[in-house]
């Protein structure tokens, strides 16, 4: 039983960021803009968030610091997403190229800025940002005492787990139960039809990309916090994995949840297999476990892509003059 708790707790650390980032990608793509820049946005978000924590960890303590850091990284995500939105919406640029540029920019910027800041602060120009992890919650009061469920969900956890689930519910409500969501989805399926009934396609797409910037950046910080105390300008390909999760989840919130936990659990097993006696006893190299999530992702995509339900206008710049 303790093994089950261990796997569930571990997989939360990997699934929640995937969930948040993939939901961000969902908003962008459902509005009609492909956002391959999620990886870069995650790096920027994690960079600004950890930098904020490392500067203010002696002044502010505990969960409020984390919440503030999340807000800071969300803001940085908005800024970088605006660059993508401007290129792909106003300039009608190739969205994949613009995204690739951001993916190149983000790690370079994170390393450059970190080295410059570190050399000014303590003259050891390393590219890592160190911070104290003071956000771990050993046990949520009251809820953590519920038998089984309490141990599964409310012990050895982070506040980010609940933020992730809250984002899921809000995302679903906004996308399917509000006028805004309906309009946003229309712009991703048939922007000309949406335009003809008075929906501002540009505005909707800006909203979609900005939301993906916020969630992507938050996801970056959420990924870093439980897994390490040193940010090294990388999120280990999680932005790209989130894109795969989005496709596997068929651009729908609850399926994205399922997909995120599917991969998150695999990833947790691959990184924590040495703590699982059965897997450790198998005569398999650890590189196999590292490859496993990617191989399974590919296999899933092979069986999932033929009947893909991608937003029809996703990736196509909206040109009012075209029909």
């Amino acid at each position: 039983m303790s093994l089950l708790y261990f796997i569930v707790q571990q997989s939360m650390y990997f699934s929640i960021p995937l969930l948040i980032v993939a939901l961000g990608g969902m908003f962008s793509e459902r509005s009609g803009v492909v956002n391959i820049a999620l990886e870069g946005i995650m790096i920027i978000g994690a960079f600004s968030g950890t930098l904020f924590i490392s500067f203010f960890q002696d002044i502010i303590k505990g969960q409020p610091l984390l919440i503030l850091a999340l807000l800071v990284s969300a803001l940085s995500g908005v800024i970088i997403a605006l660059a993508h939105a401007y290129a792909s919406i106003n300039m009608k640029a190739d969205q994949v190229i613009s995204g690739t540029a951001i993916n190149m920019f983000a790690p370079a910027f994170a390393i450059y800025a970190a080295r410059m800041i570190n050399s000014a602060r303590n003259s050891n120009g390393t590219q890592q940002i160190q911070f104290n992890n003071q956000f771990h919650i050993a046990k949520v009061p009251v809820l953590g005492d519920i038998p089984v469920l309490g141990e599964l969900l409310f012990q050895k956890t982070y506040i980010t787990t609940y933020i992730g689930f809250a984002i899921l519910i809000i995302a679903w409500l906004v996308l399917y139960k509000t006028r805004l969501g309906l309009r946003l989805r229309a712009c991703g399926e048939h922007p000309h039809a949406a335009d003809s009934v008075g929906v501002n396609v540009y505005k909707m797409r800006y909203i979609g990309v900005i939301v993906s910037g916020i969630l992507g950046a938050i996801g970056g910080l959420v990924f870093i916090i439980p897994t390490t105390t040193v940010f090294d300008a990388t999120v280990a390909g999680y932005g790209f994995l989130a894109l795969a999760v989005l496709i596997f989840g068929q651009w729908r919130p609850w399926r994205v949840l399922f997909a995120a936990f599917f991969f998150g659990t695999l990833k947790a097993i691959s990184s924590a297999y040495s703590g699982i006696p059965f897997l450790l006893s198998l005569p398999v190299n650890d590189y196999f476990y590292k490859m496993l999530p990617f191989i399974v992702t590919l296999v899933v995509l092979i069986f999932n892509s033929k009947k893909s339900q991608a937003p029809r206008a996703s990736g196509i710049p909206y040109d009012m003059g075209k029909r």
Partner: peptide, 16 residues
């Protein structure tokens, strides 16, 4: 990494 930043910005503008 300043070089990579420059290259990334060049790519961004070549997308435009």
């Amino acid at each position: 990494q300043a070089i990579e930043i420059i290259i990334a910005i060049i790519i961004y503008f070549s997308a435009l």
